[in-house]
Simulated scan of single mutants.
Amino acid sequence: MTHLRVLAPSETVSQLSQLRKLADSAAVVDQNEPFGDQTWVELHTGNAWLITTGEEALTGASAVVIPRNPEQPVLIELVVTPDSRGNGLGRALVDATQELVTEHAPDIQTTTAWTHGDHPAARGLAASAGLEPARILYRMALEIDRESFGEVDLADTYTIRTFVPGDDDAEWLSLNATAFADHPEQGQLTQADLDARKAEDWFDPAGFFVAENTAGTLVGFHWTKTPVGSAAGEVYAVGVHPSTQGSGLGKALTIHGMNHLASAGLEKIVLYVDDENRAAVNLYNSLGFGIENTDVMFSSDS
Score class of each variant (00 low, 15 high):
T2C: 01
L4F: 03
L7D: 00
V13M: 03
S17H: 06
D24E: 14
D24W: 01
S25I: 11
A26M: 04
A27K: 11
N32T: 04
V41F: 06
L43I: 02
H44T: 05
H44I: 03
W49P: 01
G54Y: 10
A61I: 13
E71V: 09
V74M: 02
L75E: 05
L75S: 09
P82V: 11
D83F: 00
G86W: 06
V94M: 15
V94E: 10
Q98H: 04
T102R: 10
H104E: 07
P106Q: 07
I108P: 02
T110A: 12
H116V: 00
H119L: 14
A121F: 10
A127C: 02
P133N: 15
L142C: 05
D145L: 03
F149V: 05
A155E: 11
A155N: 10
D156W: 07
I160L: 08
D169Y: 11
D169H: 14
D169L: 12
A179G: 12
A181T: 09
E185H: 04
E185Q: 15
G187A: 13
G187F: 12
Q188T: 08
R197E: 15
E200F: 02
A206C: 03
G216F: 05
G216K: 09
V219Y: 11
H222M: 03
W223Y: 14
T226A: 00
G229W: 04
G233F: 10
A237W: 03
G239Y: 07
I255T: 13
K268M: 06
Y272C: 04
R278E: 14
A280C: 09
A280S: 13
N282K: 06
S286D: 07
F289D: 10
G290T: 14
D295I: 00
S302E: 05
